[in-house]
Write a protein that binds this DNA or RNA. Structure first.
Lengths: 219, 219
DNA sequence: GTCAACCAAACGGTATACACTATGGAATTC
DNA sequence: GAATTCCATAGTGTATACCGTTTGGTTGAC
């Protein structure tokens, strides 16, 4: 766990800590995040906590009521579909835009795939998977797109975290499939024109959606 | 101009006022928005100003330096292209998702078009144009998409505002073209399947881009 | 004249205090 | 017993104060 001294500001510390709690499920969905309570608990004042709550709202991990109270986001199946349809639209675009860059310099993707192949836990695979996609978005050179991706990342993490907890008993080992699929994408970037990369990415994300265990239907 | 008493909170007041200033060009791009100075000027404390600055950063109207200072966003031609390519991707999606809803209930679009036809200033046309597009995104039923749109809206406004100022002398009257184009879209929603609406929206946005006067190449 | 060290003013980060509002349960009324 | 009023509590909105850091200019050495 990161300590306060590791971070440049208490706002970041609070944001980081609350994010972990929410994603890990330690903070129950729908529960109130009262500024005073959180502040006392983290050993900081209300000001950094307020800023953390605003930042987490932007990331889709916290929701504000009309009266200004902050609650841990409750997930509905519809939310997941919204997220999925946006990925299905934005990521193929990113792949097309990024194709020339990645063709010229695929090193970061290669490194990511090697790391994924060595990953020992499901959680690591998940994070490396998301990182793989983020590398592509980064390479698209569109800063706005990167911003949008980051604003979706938290909620995506929330979903995947819950999924893993629900299927704890089962293996759910996606490492080899992930590596194979990503190698296919990399090969595409290396040899195919942007429009093909775009299509390939769309297929990849569709495949991911279909592969996922059935999404829970209750919050 | 909105007064403090018209708004529920001083944060909103500050956000609103600063947004207007930035979009209108009253605040020079690149200029420092120092918390104390702004606070004194608006007659509020630093706290609401801080929150306003964070909100405006999310909207792409303000940028923070690494040391935490807030500056009025400087526009580059690349920024505009980034925005454009995202619209070109997200709005056709919205049109497809919204098609069934709008077919069943096109009233809001009709009302918007009528208002546009009566608009007396270029600024009104611009805002009604953006509202037209927002109605469609709203009708898509995808809350995340709406959030993304709103986060792009400020910067879009900034661009269009600058454009109008630069071409003040020229007519640049887009009212009739806008009405015609929007009527075409409405007709499409009323009679065509979602995939056709999607394509039509893509064409519409491409046409808008091509029609725009040459975007300025310097900040 | 140039460069570096230094210093005061400006600014952001955070804590704390106070004012106002919402919330939920207890008391009251019917 | 059910609905309503009332009130204490909890919570947010905002102001202010303090502290450390950045910044930009000035002074001094060379």
């Amino acid at each position: 766990m990161r300590k306060l001294s590791d971070l440049s500001s208490r706002s970041e510390y609070a944001t980081d800590l609350l994010r972990r709690r929410i994603i890990s499920g330690q903070s129950q969905p729908g529960s109130l995040l009262a500024e005073v309570a959180v502040a006392r608990e983290l050993g900081v004042s209300r000001v950094p906590v307020r800023e953390a709550l605003f930042a987490l709202e932007r990331d889709g991990l916290v929701e504000f009521s009309v009266t200004g109270r902050a609650y841990v986001k409750e997930l509905s199946p519809g939310d997941f579909e919204e997220l999925y349809v946006l990925r299905l639209t934005l990521e193929p675009l990113a792949a097309r835009l990024a194709a020339p860059t990645l063709r010229a310099n695929p090193r970061r993707l290669e490194k990511n795939i090697r790391a994924t192949a060595r990953a020992k836990s499901i959680l690591d695979v998940t994070h490396l998977d998301l990182e793989f996609h983020e590398i592509i978005i980064q390479a698209s050179g569109n800063g706005r797109l990167m911003k949008l991706w980051r604003s979706m990342l938290g909620e995506l993490d929330l979903w995947l975290g819950r999924l893993h907890r629900q299927h704890q008993g089962q293996k759910l080992d996606t490492r080899d499939e992930t590596v194979t699929a990503h190698q296919g994408l990399l090969e595409c970037f290396r040899t195919q024109p942007p429009s093909v990369c775009e299509r390939k990415m769309r297929d990849h994300i569709q495949g991911w959606r279909e592969w996922l265990p059935v999404m829970p239907t209750n919050a």
